[in-house]
Nucleic acid binder design. Structure first.
Lengths: 190, 190
DNA sequence: TTGACAAATTAGCGTCGCTAGATTATTTAG
DNA sequence: CTAAATAATCTAGCGACGCTAATTTGTCAA
């Protein structure tokens, strides 16, 4: 019988609506406006229903963040120009990363700042969380001996640039220069 | 008459007690535990008294953060070994910065993650907010043409390392290697 | 048709940041 | 020295939060 199939389908559709609503509200009004009450209203169910999908509010943020990691990975891979030099590829990825961070600040916040309950570096870590790292590793590899460590450091530099600029700590007008600097640093010719 | 002096003195002492209490609770139980109610109890005054010292909770976090910036600046300057080479000095500062971030995570969070209402890069920006940057600029200057931009980038790299490690995104065991990498990158010999 | 089980709701607990209005001190003026 | 004015502080409470217990409603099998 297809009844139970329909039910699980409807259930997962409802879950998607929760995630979409959370993301939409966060991007428009910030994460502080993403409350259980407001999400419940949005999906036209009572509040306790949300707790049959997610353990708590953090896990809803986590679900949005997980989407974000998937999208970031796609964007980074797509940014790597096929005819670019190794050095240009580093710049491609760096620029794409920061563009993502500034174009979707709420999403970026969910992915890297807010508590999400997501587990990294574990056996059950979802692939989305690894893919972005993989894209970075691809462009860093030509310049590094220890690729993992170099990629971690590259990623940290980008994350720091994103966060400090997002918080008004460094000058937005000099973003391109900073990227150039990181590129030169990675390719070893400061 | 010294009466009004005594009053303003007592008032600023009370303000200090608020800040100290906020910092203490944050370092022990996290910023979520720093509530107006708990602070009021700690200083043995009613809640509205806090609002005669600070506009809102964020500004209390900001007051703690401001202290943190002052302390970080001192620590960074003290870390610069007088007989160190230019390259070693970069490592000194980088290590001291990350030690600070990991030794006082709540303080670091107040300074760089939480909303604080602090204004950067303005005419009325307090000196504490500039000093740490100055210490970094000192050790970066020998390697850079545009010192400000290079310092921003160096700072961003450190901040990214601190944040990603704090959130379990990169491997704690490889912290030293990452610092080495940044050092090599800054001094141009990857 | 009824009884078991699942799905969803209502209602509410404890907590939060923040504030209006009342109360108690302190200063100033007559 | 008293009374009015002002400052300092408190009590009480508003609206909103995350979350959950207890109840009602819906759905299926015997």
């Amino acid at each position: 019988m297809g009844i139970s199939e329909r039910k699980t389908r409807e259930r997962s559709e409802r879950e998607r609506r929760i995630i979409v609503a959370a993301r939409t509200i966060a991007e428009r009004d910030g994460w502080a406006s993403v409350t259980i009450r407001r999400l419940a209203e949005e999906i036209e169910y009572s509040q306790p229903v949300l707790y049959s999908h997610f353990e708590n509010r953090d896990q809803i943020v986590g679900a949005v963040a997980l989407e974000g990691f998937g999208e970031l990975a796609v964007i980074l891979r797509a940014a790597i120009g096929p005819s670019s030099t190794a050095k240009e590829r580093v710049e491609d990825v760096a620029t794409a990363y920061l563009d993502f961070a500034f174009a979707r600040p709420a999403m970026y916040e969910a992915m890297f700042v807010l508590p999400t309950g997501l587990r990294f570096a574990r056996s059950d870590t979802p692939p989305q969380l690894r893919d972005g790292f993989g894209a970075m590793a691809t462009v860093i590899a030509p310049f590094a001996q220890d690729v993992d460590t170099a990629t971690e450091t590259f990623w940290a530099a980008l994350h720091g640039l994103a966060e400090l600029e997002r918080h008004g700590r460094i000058r937005p007008a000099f973003r391109a220069q900073r990227i150039t600097l990181i590129m030169r640093m990675v390719s070893g010719q400061l």
